[in-house]
């Protein structure tokens, strides 16, 4: 008897079991432990007091903090760090899309052999370590480097352009780190695109810009969304690149969490901060899902009309 005659849901369960088991063991259970830690007081030596009563202190600390004068005050530091991280991740995602989409489009116009070569060419730089790549940028962008020297020679009136230790350097570094995570998913949907639709559009008198906006872009949306997710989320927690190229003068949410598990030895606060970040991400994903559902409805209605 072949498996195909068994019910599709059994089939599905079989196919899903490896991923469910792996993620249960490596994500769900550890997350549970984390949630438990966030409810415990820390002990004298770092770590937490496993036997203690549950408490919500670490969550109160997210919003309120004892000021230096002794009274409880609203705590803006974490909110600021979070906002800064969200803006930075959003900017990185938009830039990656702007630079990545044309590349994916061009790749899909090549012969299959060359396409595979391009996939390789895009990923090869990322087989070197993140830190090492950041340091390479440090060398390229530094004051005595030839880029800054050339720029300053060309525009002496700008009064000494500095390329390092600012938002510009951080953007360069972040886009660099995540670009392939945008290009590859877009490419894999474009590669499968039904170009007859585009041809039809041209026949109907659409120019290239219209074809791009009305046909190619909407059809490649699944890839764009996958890419945006792969860029936005990791760059939200990124803190190494901002520290190296940005000069470490500001805190990202990733720094804050790291700090609690490191020098501050405050695991409960680190856990509650993580849950705050997680909550915000889940919320934005839900909002996005709602939005795309309503968008799909309008699109359907438009198609029927």
């Amino acid at each position: 008897m072949s498996v195909s005659s068994t019910s599709p849901s059994l089939n599905r369960a079989l196919l899903l079991s490896p991923v469910v088991l792996t993620l249960l063991a490596l994500i769900a259970i550890p997350l549970g432990i984390m949630g438990y830690i966030s409810l415990l007081p820390r002990n004298t030596y770092g770590g937490v007091d496993w036997q203690a009563q549950w408490q919500l202190e670490s969550y109160v600390q997210l919003f309120f903090q004892e000021g230096f004068d002794g009274e409880l005050e609203l705590n803006w530091v974490y909110a600021q760090a979070l906002l800064r991280s969200v803006l930075q991740a959003g900017g990185t995602t938009v830039l990656c899309f702007l630079f990545g989409f044309p590349v994916a489009l061009w790749m899909s116009s090549l012969t299959p052999r060359r396409r595979n070569l391009m996939v390789l060419l895009i990923t090869i730089p990322f087989w070197t370590n993140l830190l090492i790549r950041n340091y390479a940028w440090l060398i390229i962008l530094r004051e005595q480097g030839w880029v800054a020297q050339t720029l300053n020679a060309l525009f002496p009136s700008a009064g000494g352009i500095t390329l390092l230790y600012n938002d510009f350097a951080v953007s360069i570094g972040l886009v660099y780190s995540f670009l392939p995570f945008m290009i590859l998913p877009i490419y894999s949907t474009l590669e499968k695109l039904d170009w007859r639709l585009v041809e039809a559009a041209y026949d109907l008198g659409a120019n290239r810009w219209h074809a791009l906006r009305r046909i190619i872009l909407p059809l490649s949306m699944p890839g764009v969304i996958a890419g945006a997710l792969l860029v936005f989320v990791p760059s939200l927690g990124a803190f190494i690149t901002p520290a190296i190229l940005g000069g470490g003068k500001t805190l990202m949410i990733g720094n804050l969490i790291q700090q609690q598990f490191g020098t501050a030895r405050n695991w409960p606060l680190g856990s509650s901060l993580s849950f705050l970040l997680l909550g915000i991400l889940l919320l934005s994903l839900v909002l996005y899902a709602l939005y795309s559902r309503s968008a799909a409805k309008t699109l359907n209605r438009g198609a029927k009309a």
Binding site: V77, A81, G248, T250, L251, T263, A264
Partner: peptide, 17 residues
């Protein structure tokens, strides 16, 4: 102590925030 550590963490977060 934990209390001193908390103060240090607050100094550091505010300095960079």
């Amino acid at each position: 102590s934990n209390k001193a550590r908390e103060l240090q963490d607050r100094i550091w977060s505010k300095l960079k925030g």
